[in-house]
Write a protein that binds this DNA or RNA. Structure first.
Length: 861
DNA sequence: ATAGGGTTAG
C-alpha cells in the first residue's frame, strides 16, 4: 500500500482515475504524507468507495495541516452524504472555524454538536470554547465553558488562552489560580499560556509565584516551559532572572538561545546579546531566521556597521538573503548606521517583493538621517506605485515637519480611517503640539480609540510644553482613573510640568512620591526630570539629593545640576560638579558650558569664566553659539567690564543677535551707561521691534540719567508700534493654592490686611534707616510718589500676604515673571531680618535666598 | 520585518 501511494504522488490524477482500490481509514495519513493533503482530497473524490471513517480521517488530516477551507468544505460534504460524525471531527472542524474567524460556520457546527449529542464531550466542549474565543469576544466562550459538565486541563487552558488573546491578561492569570483551587493541575501548555499573559502585562510579582508553581509541578527542566519564563522575565525587566532560568536548563534548543538573546536586546543590553551569540556558536547551535532578525536589530541599536556587514555575509552563506524580514531588518540597520546608500541598494534590489513594511522602513531611514525631502518623495512614490500606506507609514511621515503639511496628512488619514488609531493619532497630536496648536491636538486626542500609555503621555507632554500645568495634571489623574499604568515617560513629563512657575511646589513632591511607589523613580528620565524640577522649584538641596542617588546619569542630569547650582548662586558647587564630570571623562555639550559660564557669572569669577570658554573651544571642540556669546557678554558686563563685553561682541564670527544686545542693555542699565545703552537698545529694537523689554530698559536708562526727553521719544515709539509693557506678576503658594499679584493689586479679598501689613513694614524699615532707591522707578513723578510706587511692587504684596497667611518662621517662596529690582532686593533683605523668615525669590534669571539680612547672590545679579 | 511619547541654558 505504501509503495502504491508513493507512485501515486507522482501522477496522482491519471492514477486516481484508474484506481479502484478501497481505502482503509488509516491509509489516509499515508496518502496525505505522500501526496500532500490537496491531492489526497482529489484522490478521495475520485475513489469509487467512500466510507465515513475515511472522510473523518481526511478531515483530521486537513485540520492538522492547516487546510481550514478544505476541512470546512469536507464537513459540509459529510452532512450531504448523511455520514455520521464523531467527536474528533467536530473538534477539528471547530478548530478550522476558529482559525478562519468564521463564526457563522462555527455556530452551525455548534448546532450539530447539540443535535448529535456530542456537547457533553470534553474535547468538543473545549473546541467550542476555543472557537468562540477566537471569533467573538470572551463572553460566548465563557458561557460554553460554564455549561460544560466535565472540564479538564485542556478546557481550562483553552479558556485561559482565550482571555489572554483578547488582551484580558489579568483575568487569564486569575483563571490560572482558580483552576488550581478546583484541583486541576496545569500542564506545560497551561504554563506557557499564563506565562505569556503575564509577560504581555509586564508584571513580575505574580511571575515569580508562577515560576515557583512550575518548579513544584516538576517542569523545572522543561525547555518548552522555561523558554517562556525567559521571555516573561526579559519583557518585564527581570533580565537577570531570565538568565538564571537559562543557566539552570540542561537542554537548550534554538528557541532558548533566541529568547535569551532577544531578551538582552529588548533590555538594551546589546553587547551582552552578542556575547551570548558567541557562546551559542561555541555550543554548536545553528542560526535560525528569527535570530538573524534579532541580531541585525541589535546591530542597528549599537550602530555597529561592521557587525551588520558580518551578519549580512552570514545571511548570504545561509541562503537567507531573500527572506523579506531579514532584508528589511538589514535595511533598517544600514539606515541607523547612516549608510543610506547601502540601505537603498537593498531596497532597490527588492523590486517586486517590496511591501508596505519595506517602504515604511526606507522612509523611516531617510527621516532618521534628516533627509526629510527624500522621505516625502518616497512617500509620494509609494502611493504612485499603488502601495497603500498603513498606520506605521502615516505615523512616521507625520514627523517629517516642516516638509509636510500636518493638515494635508490629517485629511488623508481621516479618509482612510486611521484617525482613531493610537499610533497615527498620537503622531498627529504630537505634530500639532510641535506646531504649537494644542487645541487641535486635544481634538485629535479625544477621537483616539483605545488610548494607550503612549497616547496619554504625548498629550500630557503637550500640556507640559505649553505650560498648562492643570491640563497636564488632569491628564495624569484621568489616565490613572482609567486603570492605565503610568510609565517612566509619563512621570518625566508630569514632573517637568511641575517645574513650571505656576505649579504648586507640593505637586512636584507628590509625583516624586508616586514615582517611588511605582518604582519608576530610578528610571533615568524620571530622575533627570526630578533634578530639574527641584532645582527650578528652588529646592536645590532636594535636587542635589536626587542627583547624588541617581543610579545612572546622563548629560541632562549633569547639566541640570550645574545650572541649578549656578542659578542658586552656588557657583563653587556648580564648578565642583563640572570638575567631577571632567574627571569621569563624561562627554559634555554646549549646554554644559552655558551652565558653567553662568555659574562663574553669578559669583563674579570673570577669569574662570574666560578659562572655561577657552576650554570649551580648545579641549572639547565645541564651537560657541549665540547663547555662549551672550553668556560671555553677561560675564563681563555684570562685573562692570563693559569694554570686554563690547570686545566679545566685536570678535564674534557672526552678527550678534537679540539675546546678546539685551544682555548688554541690561548691564548698561545697572551700570548707568547711557552711551553704550543707547547703542545696544537701538540694535535690540531694530532686531526685535515688538520686544517690550528693549523699550522699557532703554527708557529706564534715559530716566536714570534724568534725560526725560530721550525717555519720551522711546515711550512714543512704543505707543506708535503698539508695544505693551509686560506686567510684573508675583506668585506665592499658600496651602497648595497659588495666588498671583500685580503691582498695586487690590483684588485680593484680604487686600486691607495686606496693605496694613505693608504699612507696618515700611515703618519698621524706616526705623532701620532704609531709604528708597527711586532710581528704579520709571515714572516721571515726584520722589514721594516714587517711594509709594516702589512699596507696591508685586513681590512685596506677595510677601506681605505670605507673612499674614503662614505661621511664623516658615519660609516664604515667591516666583516673579520679571527681574527683581534693586530696591525690592534691599527691602526683602531687611524683611528677612526683621521677620526672621527665609524668603526665596525666583525671578526670570536666578534664585535669591534671603536670610538674616543677606542674599545668596551677594548683591551680585 | 516597519511606528507614535520624555528630560537640559538665559
Amino acid at each position: 500500500m505504501n509503495l502504491y501511494f508513493k507512485t501515486l504522488s507522482k501522477q496522482t490524477k491519471s492514477l486516481c482515475r484508474a484506481c479502484s482500490v478501497t481505502f482503509g481509514s488509516k491509509d489516509f495519513s499515508v496518502a496525505v504524507e505522500h501526496c500532500g493533503s490537496r491531492n489526497a482530497h482529489h484522490l478521495f473524490e475520485k475513489s469509487p468507495r467512500r466510507d465515513p471513517l475515511a472522510y473523518n480521517n481526511l478531515l483530521f488530516e486537513y485540520s492538522r495541516n492547516g487546510l481550514n477551507h478544505e476541512a470546512l468544505t469536507l464537513f459540509a460534504g459529510l452532512g450531504r452524504y448523511g455520514f455520521s460524525v464523531d467527536g474528533l471531527t467536530l473538534s477539528c472542524t471547530l478548530k478550522a472555524c476558529g482559525c478562519l474567524f468564521d463564526q457563522l460556520s462555527g455556530k452551525r457546527v455548534h448546532c450539530q454538536c447539540v443535535k448529535s449529542g456530542f456537547l457533553g464531550d470534553v474535547s468538543v466542549g473545549t473546541s467550542l470554547v476555543d472557537m468562540y474565543m477566537r471569533t467573538e469576544g470572551v463572553r460566548d466562550g465563557r458561557k460554553v465553558f460554564d455549561e460544560m459538565r466535565e472540564k479538564n486541563v485542556v478546557s481550562w487552558t483553552a479558556l485561559l488562552a482565550g482571555y489572554a488573546q483578547n488582551g484580558l491578561h489579568d483575568s487569564a492569570v486569575e483563571l490560572f489560580f482558580q483552576m488550581q483551587v478546583k484541583g486541576v493541575k496545569p500542564n506545560p501548555l497551561t504554563f506557557v499560556t499564563v506565562i505569556g499573559a503575564l509577560a504581555n502585562r509586564g508584571v513580575v510579582e505574580e511571575g515569580s509565584q508562577i515560576h515557583t508553581t512550575v518548579i513544584k509541578s516538576g517542569y523545572e527542566s522543561s525547555t518548552f516551559v522555561c523558554n517562556s519564563l525567559i521571555t516573561m522575565y526579559s519583557k518585564s525587566g527581570g533580565i537577570r532572572d531570565a538568565r538564571v532560568v537559562f543557566d539552570n536548563l540542561d537542554s537548550r534548543d534554538a528557541v532558548t538561545w533566541n529568547s535569551m538573546i532577544a531578551g538582552y536586546v529588548k533590555n538594551g543590553l546589546d553587547l551582552e546579546a552578542f556575547r551570548m551569540f558567541y557562546l551559542m556558536n561555541l555550543a554548536g547551535e545553528k542560526l535560525t531566521q528569527p535570530l538573524f532578525v534579532t541580531l541585525i536589530k541589535s546591530c542597528a541599536n549599537l550602530k555597529k556597521l561592521c557587525f551588520a556587514r558580518q551578519l549580512h555575509c552570514r545571511v548570504l552563506r545561509c541562503g537567507l538573503e531573500f527572506d523579506p524580514n531579514i532584508r528589511t531588518a538589514l535595511m533598517v540597520a544600514y539606515g541607523k548606521c547612516t549608510e543610506m546608500d547601502d540601505a537603498f541598494k537593498m531596497f532597490s534590489m527588492m523590486q517586486g517583493v517590496r511591501n508596505v513594511v519595506s517602504w515604511t522602513a526606507m522612509i523611516s531611514g531617510y527621516l532618521q538621517n534628516s533627509a526629510m525631502e527624500r522621505a516625502v518623495n518616497l512617500f509620494c512614490q509609494m502611493s504612485r506605485e499603488g502601495v497603500r500606506p498603513n498606520d506605521f507609514t502615516y505615523s512616521i511621515i507625520l514627523t517629517a515637519q516642516p516638509s509636510i503639511s500636518v493638515l494635508q496628512v490629517h485629511a488623508q488619514v481621516v479618509k482612510v480611517n486611521y484617525d482613531r488609531s493610537p499610533t497615527v493619532g498620537t503622531a498627529m497630536l504630537d505634530a500639532y503640539i510641535k506646531t504649537g496648536n494644542i487645541k487641535e491636538a486635544a481634538k485629535v486626542f479625544k477621537l483616539i480609540d483605545g488610548k494607550d500609555i503612549v497616547t496619554w503621555s504625548a498629550m500630557l507632554a503637550g500640556y507640559a510644553q505649553v505650560g498648562e500645568i492643570d491640563g497636564a495634571v488632569k491628564i495624569f489623574l484621568k489616565l490613572a482613573k482609567e486603570g492605565i499604568r503610568p510609565n517612566e515617560f509619563t512621570f518625566s513629563s508630569v514632573i517637568h510640568a511641575c517645574a513650571g512657575p505656576t505649579a504648586a511646589a507640593e505637586q512636584g513632591k507628590q509625583f516624586h512620591t508616586l514615582s517611588i511607589k511605582t518604582r519608576l523613580n530610578n528610571a533615568l528620565c524620571v530622575s533627570s526630570a526630578l533634578v530639574t524640577m527641584y532645582a527650578k522649584r528652588g529646592n536645590i538641596e532636594s535636587a542635589n539629593e536626587v542627583f547624588k542617588r541617581q543610579w545612572e546619569r546622563d548629560l541632562i542630569s549633569w547639566n541640570s545640576m550645574i545650572s541649578g547650582f549656578a542659578q542658586h548662586g552656588q557657583g563653587k558647587k556648580a564648578l565642583q560638579i563640572f570638575e567631577d564630570m571632567r574627571r569621569k571623562q563624561i562627554k559634555m555639550d554646549g549646554i554644559t558650558f552655558i551652565g558653567v559660564i553662568s555659574a562663574c557669572t553669578h559669583v563674579g569669577l570673570v577669569d574662570e569664566g574666560q578659562r572655561y570658554f577657552e576650554m570649551m573651544v580648545k579641549d572639547q571642540h565645541i564651537s560657541p553659539k549665540m547663547e555662549h556669546y551672550s553668556c560671555m557678554v553677561d560675564l563681563y558686563s555684570r562685573a562692570g567690564k563693559l569694554e570686554n563685553a563690547v570686545d566679545i561682541i566685536n570678535g564674534m564670527p557672526f552678527p550678534a543677535g537679540a539675546a546678546v544686545w539685551r544682555t548688554l542693555l541690561a548691564a548698561c542699565h545697572v551700570r548707568r551707561n547711557l552711551e553704550l545703552g543707547k547703542f545696544a537698545g537701538e540694535k535690540l529694537i531694530s532686531l526685535q521691534p515688538q520686544d517690550s523689554a528693549a523699550y522699557v530698559l532703554l527708557s529706564n536708562i534715559y530716566a536714570a540719567a534724568g534725560n526725560w526727553q530721550g525717555r519720551a521719544v522711546v515711550r512714543k515709539l512704543m505707543d506708535e508700534r503698539k508695544v505693551k509693557k509686560e506686567a510684573g506678576y508675583s506668585w506665592i503658594e499658600v496651602k497648595n493654592k497659588t495666588y498671583s499679584f500685580l503691582a498695586g493689586d487690590r483684588s485680593h479679598p484680604m487686600a486691607e490686611h495686606i496693605y496694613s501689613k505693608l504699612e507696618e513694614l515700611s515703618f519698621r524699615l524706616k526705623d532701620m534707616g532704609y531709604q528708597p532707591d527711586t532710581n528704579y522707578v520709571l515714572h516721571d513723578v515726584e520722589d514721594e510718589h516714587k517711594a509709594a510706587i516702589l512699596s507696591q511692587h508685586s513681590e512685596r504684596i506677595a510677601i506681605a500676604f505670605g507673612l499674614i497667611s503662614t505661621p511664623a518662621g516658615t519660609p516664604i517662596q515667591i516666583v516673579k515673571n520679571l527681574r527683581i529690582c534693586g530696591d525690592c532686593h534691599n527691602v526683602i533683605k531687611l524683611i528677612s531680618l526683621i521677620k526672621r523668615r527665609e524668603i526665596v525669590v525666583r525671578d526670570t534669571n536666578r534664585f535669591h535666598h534671603f536670610k538674616g539680612g543677606v542674599c545668596s547672590c551677594g548683591d551680585y545679579w
